[in-house]
């Protein structure tokens, strides 16, 4: 029987087995390729999405265990309508290769939803599961702070 899941506000059905990680349903079945495969063992954070607003490593979550609505990078904002976090990423010109940035942005969005004005230590704590081999961390930190400030203005 096909499984139904809600991604970015839209219901989708998948015929894939329930043990297939959410990541691979999003990428290979639903064509939502913004969420990235990096390590397959929740060690790099490239596959981070939100399930019920919580940051989750989608490479370790069997699709049958998804308990709530899923938000991916495509659902956070679009090129024409950037979310506050994405706008901060563009403002600080964070990305280099860009491959890890979907996960970084989803992790940062979850952090700011929980702690609107995070300290450096709180940023370290929340973001250290997200690996960036290009070394964009200084600009990531600056962008998180800018997004925090912008979100407070609203």
């Amino acid at each position: 029987m096909p499984l139904t899941l809600t991604v970015n506000g839209t219901d989708h059905q998948t015929d894939l087995p329930e043990n297939v990680p959410l990541l691979w349903v999003l990428r290979d079945d639903l064509g939502l390729t913004g969420t990235k495969f990096g390590c397959g063992i929740a060690a790099c954070g490239a596959c981070t999405v939100h399930v019920g607003g919580v940051a989750v490593r989608s490479c370790q979550l069997p699709v049958g265990d998804v308990w709530d609505e899923v938000t991916t990078i495509e659902g956070l904002g679009t090129p024409a309508a950037l979310s506050a976090v994405q706008a901060a990423w563009v403002e600080h010109q964070v990305a280099q290769c860009g491959y890890c940035q979907s996960g970084q942005i989803m992790q940062a969005a979850a952090l700011l939803a929980e702690i609107p004005d995070p300290s450096d230590a709180e940023i370290d704590e929340a973001m250290q599961g997200n690996l960036c081999r290009c070394g964009t961390y200084p600009r990531i930190r600056a962008a998180v702070k800018t997004a925090s400030a912008k979100m407070k203005e609203v």
Binding site: G31, L32, T33, G34, T35, K36, F37, T72, I73, E74, L76, G77, T78, P79, L82, Q86, W89, V90, Q93, V94, A95, G98, Y99, Q101, S102, I105
Partner: peptide, 23 residues
Amino acid sequence: KSQPRVDMVAKSTGTAQFGIDVR
């Protein structure tokens, strides 16, 4: 002069297409 990178918006929105994203 520092230019906004031509790939920045795509890389901040999950719309940049890497090899692994070819469909």
